[in-house]
């Protein structure tokens, strides 16, 4: 598949009073044309920061490492001036955020805000054309009574409806890549369900690529084709969606999956959990970031960061236990093989 976005060795650091927070510590990935890639991780894993780094929507204290490279459709983004970047933002790459309320201006009618988005990149459109396009977009994202709602203000919209407006805005200029940063986290399950369905149909209609960032493996399973699992600022595992769920290639992924109770699960036993807390990124662990919480951790895990091991097409994972010389005893990957 042809890649629309290639990220190479991305490192992003925040300078704070208590030291430099190494939020993203060198990640590389690709997004194919028309592909939906999920980035899964806990809070503090660096998943949001990596997506923000692509469009450089970072606070002033953030620094992107010089060796990082972000190539979008053949164009290197890291060296662009803010002005050049603005040409890409919203037109070719657009974003949807977790909190739609703070992304919308409370004083301007929503229809107007979507129009603005269109006008920035299409100055030639007349008022009537703009209006028609906005109506069409509202129809696409299934906002009922679009004529009436155009003139309403964000506070008159429910959370789900606001997120639809955000999606309409993001799709306004027919972007090639849509970055959705936990767009459903603040919503209720029933609304999340509606939004996910919508995103799926919209993606099929427009053919845009989507990077979908979430902490919920369930959401990823419903939407994405390929998944990156992030922890401690690193990509722990990358896999096509079916392979990941059938045969997780990293102890962290295993732990994550086990801690979601299935609706048919026996409830007499304890829920499998991952003990401990995520690492402090001002002082990231020297070895594998998951080692202190990993049930299979060896001495080497705490001492050195493991290299990636390819587990097939589009599949790689970072774990010492995947090395050929790793012992079979208490090794989750060997048991699989034996079975």
């Amino acid at each position: 598949m042809e890649a629309i976005l290639t990220v190479n060795n991305l490192k992003t650091t925040f300078l704070t009073g208590s030291g430099a927070v190494q939020a993203v510590r060198g990640i590389s990935f690709q997004v194919g044309k028309g592909e939906i890639v999920g980035i899964v991780g806990e809070s503090g894993s660096g998943k949001s920061v990596s997506s923000m780094s692509i469009l450089r929507l970072l606070p002033g204290t953030a620094r992107i490492d010089r060796e990082s490279s972000i190539v979008f459709d053949g164009q290197e983004l890291t060296g662009l001036t803010p002005k050049q970047l603005r040409q890409i933002r919203g037109k070719r790459i657009s974003m949807i955020f977790q909190d739609p309320m703070s992304s919308l201006n409370p004083l301007i009618p929503v229809g107007k805000q979507v129009e603005e988005m269109l006008k920035i990149h299409h100055k030639e459109l007349t008022r009537e054309q703009l209006r028609r396009q906005v109506l069409e977009l509202f129809g696409q994202v299934r906002i009922p009574e679009p004529e009436k709602r155009l003139k309403e203000f964000p506070h008159q919209f429910s959370g789900g409806m606001r997120q639809r407006v955000m999606i309409a805005m993001a799709l306004a200029n027919k972007p090639d890549l849509l970055i959705a940063d936990e767009p459903t986290t603040a919503l209720d399950v029933t609304i999340q369900d509606q939004i996910l369905k919508q995103l799926r149909t919209l993606q099929q209609e427009s053919g845009a690529s989507i990077i979908f960032i979430t902490h919920d493996l369930g959401v990823v399973a419903e939407l994405c084709q390929r998944v990156l699992v992030m922890y401690g600022g690193l990509i722990m595992e990358e896999a096509p969606i079916d392979d990941l769920f059938e045969n997780p290639g990293h102890p962290y992924t295993m732990g994550l999956m086990a801690s979601i109770p299935a609706l048919n699960q026996d409830k007499t036993g304890r829920l499998p959990s991952i003990p401990g807390s995520p690492p402090d990124m001002t002082n990231p662990p020297q070895g594998c970031p998951f080692a202190p919480r990993c049930p299979y951790a060896r001495k080497i895990c705490a001492a050195q960061c493991p290299p990636y091991v390819s587990l097939g097409e589009n599949r790689r994972s970072m774990c010492w236990l995947l090395q050929p010389d790793a012992p079979a005893e208490n090794n989750p990957f060997r048991k699989e093989a034996a079975r």
Partner: peptide
């Protein structure tokens, strides 16, 4: 509500009937 829960299993998720609750 039950049918709106995302299923952490891609195979099942694809089979899932269209259910959920419409509206706000």
């Amino acid at each position: 509500l039950l049918s709106a829960i995302p299923v952490a299993n891609p195979a099942l998720a694809r089979q899932k009937k269209s259910g959920g609750v419409a509206g706000d």
